[in-house]
Amino acid sequence: MSVEVTNETIWDIDAKAFSDLGLWVMDQMRVSTQSDLTILFVDPEPIAELHERWMSLEGPTDVMSFPMDELRPGDGKTTMEGVLGDLVICPWVAAQQAAAADHSTMQEMMLLTIHGILHLLGYDHVTPEQERQMFGLQRQLLLTFLAVRRITIEPATLPKGAADALAEYDASHGGGRQITG
């Protein structure tokens, strides 16, 4: 399997759904499904540390992408192969964004996975045109994946009574956190 999914949180997350999604997006973007992709789910503190170290921005964020071989989408004749890279996703931030967008945490994390893969493939959203292209493509990829998938995707859930790690992070770091994408 070329997509490794690791969950370092207390969230119950369907790893197979993310592995399947990663493979499907790589195939759609004409990147060999033998290429390596790692998806790591972490709590607010570790992603905040990565956010500070690599982006010089404070606080937790939703997803971070760490490209390796700088693969680009294939051109229809060529399928790119290598180490795509690593994605780090914070379910706590995803849950907050999902509530604001009025959809499920699982759907938000799947969208973030696609968003991160597109970043690994060189897409960005700095200019309005880039944003329209990237966000349109990620929406199309997610909707198509959900439409062609024949089995139910389990929701991402927290154990009953679990503390809100994002609120705890905010309280211990003086609040005022900004979410960046």
Rank of each mutant, 00 (worst) to 15 (best):
R53I: 09
I153C: 00
Q138I: 01
T79D: 15
A99K: 00
V5P: 01
L143K: 02
A162T: 02
M29R: 15
D27W: 08
D86I: 03
D75I: 08
M1Y: 09
Q28W: 11
R72D: 15
L158H: 04
Q107R: 01
G76P: 10
H51D: 14
Q28F: 03
G136D: 15
L118Q: 09
L141S: 02
S2G: 14
S32Y: 13
E70F: 12
F66D: 07
G175T: 06
S172V: 08
M1L: 03
V31C: 08
R30H: 13
G181C: 03
I47M: 01
G59I: 10
P46F: 06
T152R: 10
L21Q: 07
T127F: 09
W54K: 06
E8M: 05
R149P: 05
A95W: 05
H125G: 04
L84A: 10
E131R: 14
D20N: 13
Q96N: 00
Y169A: 09
M110A: 01
M110K: 02
Q140G: 04
M109K: 06
D27Y: 12
P159C: 12
L158D: 05
S104V: 03
G176Y: 05
G85M: 06
G22T: 02
E52T: 08
I89W: 04
A15C: 07
W11E: 02
I153T: 08
T157V: 08
A162N: 07
T33Q: 08
R177D: 07
V88L: 06
W54L: 07
M55D: 06
I153F: 06
P73E: 14
E58M: 13
G74P: 09
T6K: 12
V3P: 02
G175A: 12
T33F: 04
P60E: 05
L57I: 10
E81Y: 09
M80D: 11
L40R: 13
G175I: 05
T61M: 05
E129A: 07
T113M: 02
L40G: 02
N7V: 02
R139G: 03
P44T: 03
R72W: 11
M80L: 10
H173Y: 07
E131P: 02
E8L: 08
L141C: 01
T144N: 08
L137E: 13
R132I: 12
D75A: 12
G176T: 03
Q107S: 00
L40W: 03
Q28G: 03
E45F: 07
Y169I: 01
V93F: 06
L120Q: 12
E49V: 04
V3Q: 11
L23S: 15
A17S: 11
G76L: 11
E45P: 01
M106G: 00
V3C: 09
H103R: 04
D20C: 06
L142M: 08
D124H: 08
K160H: 10
H125F: 14
E154A: 10
M80Q: 15
L23M: 13
A17I: 07
T105S: 04
D27P: 01
E4V: 15
D102C: 04
V126H: 09
D164T: 06
I117L: 13
E81N: 15
D12S: 11
N7K: 11
D12F: 06
S2D: 03
T9S: 12
W92N: 04
T33D: 10
S2L: 05
A171L: 13
I47S: 13
M1K: 01
V3W: 02
M106Y: 00
T157C: 11
T78N: 15
G59H: 08
